[in-house]
Amino acid sequence: MQLVLRQQQGAATVVYCAVAPELQGLGGMYFNNCFRCLPSPQAEDKAAAASLWELSDRLVLDRPTGLQAL
């Protein structure tokens, strides 16, 4: 029973953001425990974002061509 409650609590913010009428058409916001919050300074670091994008792109392009999606 406790596992089910933790799963529900863990999904609550995602479900709220997906179905809340007051958020319809909005995006680019951060939520925690169903409340909007400010992003961390790390989340707003443009250089870190560019570096992460380049790494992600390289990892996707370098994967074996025979690899199937899981």
Rank of each mutant, 00 (worst) to 15 (best):
D45L: 12
A12G: 06
M29Y: 15
Q7F: 15
G66H: 03
C17H: 12
G25N: 06
V14C: 08
N33A: 10
G28P: 08
Q8H: 04
E22I: 08
A48E: 03
V4S: 05
Q2E: 05
E54V: 14
L61V: 14
C17L: 06
L52V: 05
L5Q: 11
A11D: 03
A47L: 06
L38F: 13
N32T: 07
N32Y: 12
L61F: 03
G27P: 01
D57N: 06
L59R: 12
P64S: 15
K46A: 08
R63C: 13
T65S: 13
A49T: 10
Q9V: 08
L59H: 04
Q42K: 10
Q2W: 01
P39G: 10
A11E: 05
A49R: 07
L59K: 11
L3E: 07
L67P: 04
L23D: 03
D62I: 02
A69L: 15
V60R: 15
G27Q: 10
A49C: 08
L38I: 05
L59F: 03
A12R: 04
V15S: 05
Q24H: 05
S56E: 02
L70N: 13
L61M: 13
P39A: 10
Q68I: 05
M1L: 02
K46T: 04
K46D: 07
L26W: 09
V19H: 04
G28V: 01
E22G: 05
L67E: 14
L67T: 15
P41F: 06
S51Q: 14
Q68D: 14
G10S: 04
A20T: 05
R58N: 12
A48C: 10
F31P: 01
A47F: 00
R36M: 14
Y30M: 10
Q9K: 09
P64A: 15
K46H: 12
L26R: 14
Q7L: 05
V15D: 07
L23Y: 03
C37S: 13
T13V: 06
S51D: 12
P41W: 06
F35L: 13
G25S: 09
S40L: 15
A47N: 14
L59Y: 01
Q8K: 04
L3S: 02
L52T: 10
A18F: 00
S56W: 08
Q2T: 00
E22P: 03
A18E: 03
S56N: 07
L70C: 05
A48M: 13
A48H: 00
R36Y: 02
S40T: 15
L5K: 13
S40Y: 15
G28F: 00
W53F: 12
L70T: 06
